[in-house]
Simulated assay, not measured.
Amino acid sequence: MSAKNNTPLAKGSRLKRLLPLLILLLGLAAVYAMGWHRYLSFGILQENRENLIGFVQGQKVIAALAFLALYALAVAFSIPGGSFLTIAGGFMFGTWLGGLYAVMAATVGSTLVFLAAKTAFGGILRQKASGYLQKMESGFKENELSYLLVLRLVPLFPFWLVNLVPAFVGMSLRNYVIGTFFGIIPGTFVYASVGNGLDALFRSGETPDLGIILRPEILLPIMGLALLSLVPVLYKKYCKEKQA
């Protein structure tokens, strides 16, 4: 069995599975090696705000496509700075368009990570899953959309980690895309609205408050949405207990 797994064909198959994830990891390494991650700062945005505004006003379609591509790649390469990019989107395109572009790009980038991780490790982890991990996988699959919505709505874990875990437990692509798209909408538009008023902050010499999402007047409604997402899970559990 082990000899069969070490044949050139088997090694080639493993490399093919790992290739998408390797590309994303190499992309992340290249970004840090070239120092491009340093451009994701409010200082750089402030220095170039007039050029950016002029670019958006003169080339709306190209500017939107460039922002979508940059944001999607940043998420795919797991580069920290999603909140900054969302604020930048609100600054350049306004709350509604900037928020929409950010949601679309983040969903695309997250899906690329999900597919890469699922291709590389999903099958292996499911084969080796046993005990508690197996129970967790079956529980997640049964209510995967509700669980992902909660993870997206409430920032309990890093965004990159939430991109990976569903791939490891065998979540369907359809539910992953739906849960990601709708789950990130509230937080994204909060940050986009901050970006919409960013120019006034720059003029007054202030910087945006990235902790705004944790303010009670914002966090409590989002947590309310998260609880609503768990209603199907609680209802299923209630029906099972009633039948028992």
Rank of each mutant, 00 (worst) to 15 (best):
A129Q: 11
L198D: 10
G197Y: 01
R152M: 03
N196G: 07
R152D: 01
K141M: 14
T188K: 06
Q127W: 09
S130A: 14
Q134A: 13
L148V: 06
T207V: 12
T207M: 03
L151D: 02
G179L: 00
Q127E: 14
G187F: 12
R152N: 09
N175W: 01
A167E: 10
N175G: 10
E137Y: 00
S193L: 12
S138G: 04
L156I: 12
R215M: 05
P208E: 08
E137I: 13
N143W: 04
T188A: 11
A167Q: 05
P158Y: 09
N175D: 08
P186V: 11
V177N: 02
L149E: 07
G211N: 12
V194P: 05
G195D: 11
N196A: 14
N196C: 13
G179M: 11
L153M: 02
R203M: 15
V154M: 01
V150N: 14
S130H: 15
S172H: 10
L164R: 04
G131E: 10
M171K: 03
I212S: 03
S138T: 08
K128T: 10
P216W: 02
L219E: 02
R174G: 02
P166H: 02
L161F: 14
V169Y: 13
V190M: 05
S146F: 04
R152C: 04
L210I: 06
I124N: 02
P158V: 05
S172G: 08
L173K: 00
A167Y: 09
F140I: 06
F157Q: 11
F159A: 00
D199M: 10
R215F: 15
L198V: 03
T180F: 09
L201H: 09
L214R: 03
N175F: 02
L125A: 06
D199V: 13
L156V: 13
I213H: 00
S146A: 08
V165N: 08
